[in-house]
Amino acid sequence: MRRLSTLFATDFASAVGDLGLRQVLFGILSIVGGNPGINQGEVGKALGIQRANMVSLVNELVDRELLDRRVAAEDRRAFELRLTAAGERCVDEAIGRIRQHEDKLLSDLSPPERAKLIQLLSRIGASGG
């Protein structure tokens, strides 16, 4: 599994690397894109990113003008995140490339085999193992 993880990570990096995205940055952008106005802490929890690390990652995305960070109206100690127009374009481009990356890596699997693989990996992920 470690070798396959490395293979996927390496191919992912080649697919979206020129966009300046690492897996963790894409994960943040994806969650924010699907949940506009989400609290920065909630994004970190969803991805298992510690608070201190989350701050620097969000700073990186804000500096690149891919994310907009605002003080939350209901909790002045928290920050709400939204994709900027550039962030939306970046995510859209990355998703297209990631689909191609996944199609290439999974090309030897039939659609039912792909579905089964996703089901099995989801079970492993849900078990925390």
Score class of each variant (00 low, 15 high):
Arg2Phe: 14
Arg2His: 11
Arg3Asn: 14
Leu4Tyr: 13
Leu7Met: 12
Phe8Ser: 09
Phe8Gln: 07
Ala9Thr: 09
Ala9Tyr: 15
Thr10Ile: 15
Phe12Val: 02
Ala13Leu: 10
Ser14Asn: 15
Val16His: 00
Leu19Phe: 06
Gly20Ser: 04
Gly20Val: 08
Gln23Lys: 12
Ser30Tyr: 11
Ser30Phe: 12
Ile31Ala: 10
Ile31Met: 09
Ile31Cys: 09
Val32Ile: 08
Gly34Tyr: 04
Asn35Phe: 07
Pro36Ile: 01
Gly37Lys: 01
Gly37Thr: 01
Asn39His: 09
Gln40His: 01
Gln40Ala: 02
Gln40Asp: 08
Gly41Glu: 06
Glu42Ser: 13
Gly44Ala: 04
Ala46Pro: 01
Leu47Trp: 03
Leu47Glu: 02
Gly48Met: 06
Ile49Trp: 13
Ile49Leu: 15
Gln50Ser: 13
Arg51Gln: 11
Met54Asp: 08
Met54Ser: 05
Val55Gly: 09
Val55Tyr: 11
Val58Ser: 00
Val58Asn: 01
Val62Leu: 12
Val62Ile: 10
Asp63Val: 09
Arg64Glu: 06
Arg64Pro: 02
Glu65Tyr: 13
Glu65Ala: 07
Leu67Tyr: 07
Arg69His: 00
Arg69Val: 07
Val71Lys: 05
Val71His: 02
Ala72Ile: 00
Ala73Gly: 14
Ala73Asn: 02
Asp75Pro: 07
Arg77Gln: 07
Leu81Ser: 01
Leu83His: 05
Thr84Arg: 01
Ala86Phe: 11
Ala86Glu: 09
Gly87Ala: 04
Arg89Ala: 13
Arg89His: 12
Glu93Tyr: 00
Ile95Asn: 04
Arg97Met: 09
Ile98Lys: 00
Arg99Cys: 15
Gln100Thr: 14
Glu102Trp: 14
Lys104Gly: 08
Leu105Tyr: 08
Ser107Cys: 11
Leu109Arg: 02
Ser110Ile: 01
Pro111Thr: 07
Glu113Thr: 04
Arg114Lys: 05
Arg114Gly: 03
Ala115Asp: 02
Lys116Ala: 10
Gln119His: 08
Gln119Asp: 11
Gln119Lys: 04
Leu120Tyr: 10
Leu121Ile: 12
Ser122His: 11
Arg123Ser: 12
Ile124Phe: 13
Ile124Gly: 04
Gly128Ile: 05
Gly129Lys: 09
Gly129His: 14
